[in-house]
Design a protein around this nucleic acid. Structure first.
Lengths: 333, 333
DNA sequence: CCGATTTGGTAAATCGTATTACCATTCTTT
DNA sequence: AAAGAATGGTAATACGATTTACCAAATCGG
């Protein structure tokens, strides 16, 4: 910047104020043009580190997800990235597995307060570490789907509603004995989905006993194993609400292992949707939830100036809706 | 840091040199302990922006991928993230779609030389923009799979070898008339895979005419459409080498649309592997390539001090290997 | 006891930008 | 023509580290 100022015969203050669009700066059209031409000619770009130092702001947002290879989380990442870009910020990505132990740069950046905001998906050691650091430096933090004691915001999805919609779909097809393949126990969203299933069953005067509920998780293997336990516990069921679509695909495989036909003998409907759900066999009927929008909302919340403490929003636009495919069918009985 | 220095009764120079592990610093054990205790007590963390400014180094690496939701690219991201973390750097993630137009922070960071390195996957407007900025500021750049005129490194996969392995597998099963469902034309890796198919056919004295080749792409829809063109052009084929596993899954759907049984009438083997490939029907036989390792290698190359200009490496460990599933079977004829 | 060496530090100059608080002129106005 | 306002800027400081060059006091060898 010094060089630009010298070449233009002005002080660096003018250059800085001009480039940062200072409204109070009065400058003749001639010098303005001259400076801009020289900036162009010298190919000057402001030093980002100096700016961050001076402004105490980095326009960097960190997102820690459990696992990018899970299409559900990938969609969150995608939404967050798009929003960050739209907000003129860049996105730092971390995966839980690599951040759990040892010293590493991303956790350090959080601990140094060097980022403008932090978005945490999922619960675990990595998330806890990040959160602890963030709290100390008062980094604006948004939790996705799982709450915490810290003064961070919480963004959730209409979990209960979506589970109810899924359950209702099975009921409408005539399945009266439904089971629930839940995600990991103890998490808010997990409970909410189970509650959606239970309450919708209750609303129709049907029972939803614990024997028809299995806690599994959000990946293929857990879904595959979980569905076997579910069938074992409750062989009478003809419909399954799977609380996570990736697990549901595992469940389809598990049912095939058991030689149970889907949707002939058992219908399966899952929460969340992603492109490949249309390409498994049978194509998975799902209830789509606004995952990308959730990622985007988190970033927007950070970039906005709302007080994040105990701030809780639910992303209900677009509303959860059924993507009808082949894994659900009318009950045969 | 000033506060720490004052509290310890020393100058900031000692604190800085102590914390950064300066070997030439001579301090008494007493002051060393005292300073460290005070750092702890005051919960001091060095200001990252100031360090970056002074050291002209940010320990930030940017990775731009076409699309995180594609499991093939997700695995690259995952590998890169792990390597960055291991190298004590953080990973900035960008998706092509959001970076193509308009001003945005990530491209600006590159243009300001504010990152230590840049990894580009795929070709397109976003990649071109990033590359142009990187060249001007001499940012260490690594291209994945597609080369460029710039002085950046290129990392590739054993594409030709993998395609040959896939082809060989079909030949071993007795398929003499094979087709190739290629990815986008004009890209190095795309050509290499086709070359692998062609040369392996030739090596067995079989023909591989252009009619049995279709250029598609790397997503579900392009695979689905592409396979239909392929069958249309060459209805005689009984085996398909799909150059991308995501496209291959689209192709399975396309074949089902055509009511062609896999593997009964046509066998399909694809390049690249990911968990869901085991869960489609029929489960997709693939040739696994070291995608995560490629992402990691890119980061390691950046963090190392090799001269990147015209540096070309192929990731051949672990070697491509067949993951045998159900989409390939012995030829019936 | 004197000069040399070691010990244990320090002072000060960057790094590149943003911003506050001030001017000199020149132009109006009466 | 003198006072007041507008024009077009400038000087200086702070942001928070790193690093080079230097130095006083203590120790040591002879």
């Amino acid at each position: 910047m010094k060089e630009v100022a010298k070449a233009a015969g002005v002080s660096t203050a003018v250059v800085s104020r001009l480039l940062s669009g200072d409204k109070t700066l009065r400058v003749s059209a001639a010098t303005r043009e001259r400076i801009l031409r020289i900036v162009e000619a010298l190919d000057y770009t402001p030093n980002v580190a100096a700016q961050s130092l001076r402004l105490a702001r980095s326009r960097l947002i960190a997102l820690i997800v459990h696992n990018v290879s899970n299409p559900v989380y990938a969609e969150i990442v995608s939404g967050a990235e798009a929003a960050a870009t739209a907000r003129d910020s860049a996105l730092l990505l971390g995966e839980a597995a690599s951040l759990e132990t040892g010293s590493n740069r991303l956790i350090d950046l959080i601990g140094a307060g060097a980022i403008d905001g932090l978005v945490l998906q999922g619960a675990g050691a990595a998330t806890d570490r990040a959160l602890a650091k963030a709290v100390r430096k008062r980094v604006r933090t948004v939790m996705l789907q799982v709450e915490t004691e810290a003064d961070s915001a919480l963004i959730s999805l209409p979990d209960q509603e979506a589970a109810a919609i899924a359950t209702d779909h099975l009921l409408a097809l005539g399945h009266e004995r439904t089971g629930c393949l839940a995600t990991a126990p103890g998490l808010r969203f997990s409970q909410a989905r189970v509650a959606g299933w239970r309450s919708e069953m209750a609303r129709h005067g049907l029972e939803a006993p614990d024997s028809r509920l299995v806690w599994a998780g959000s990946d293929l293997a857990l879904g595959r194993g979980g569905v076997k336990r579910l069938i074992d516990q409750a062989p009478e069921i003809t419909g399954i609400v799977a609380c996570n679509a990736v697990a549901a695909i595992g469940a389809l495989a598990g049912l095939e292992d058991l030689e149970i036909d889907v949707p002939g003998e058992v219908s399966v409907i899952a929460l969340h949707d992603f492109p490949l759900a249309d390409y498994v066999t049978p194509a998975l009927t799902t209830v789509r939830m606004p995952l990308a929008e959730m990622g985007a909302a988190a970033v927007n919340l950070i970039c906005g100036d709302a007080d994040l403490a105990k701030h809780h929003v639910t992303i209900d636009r677009p509303a959860p809706r059924i993507i009808l495919r082949r894994s659900t069918a009318r009950a045969s009985g």
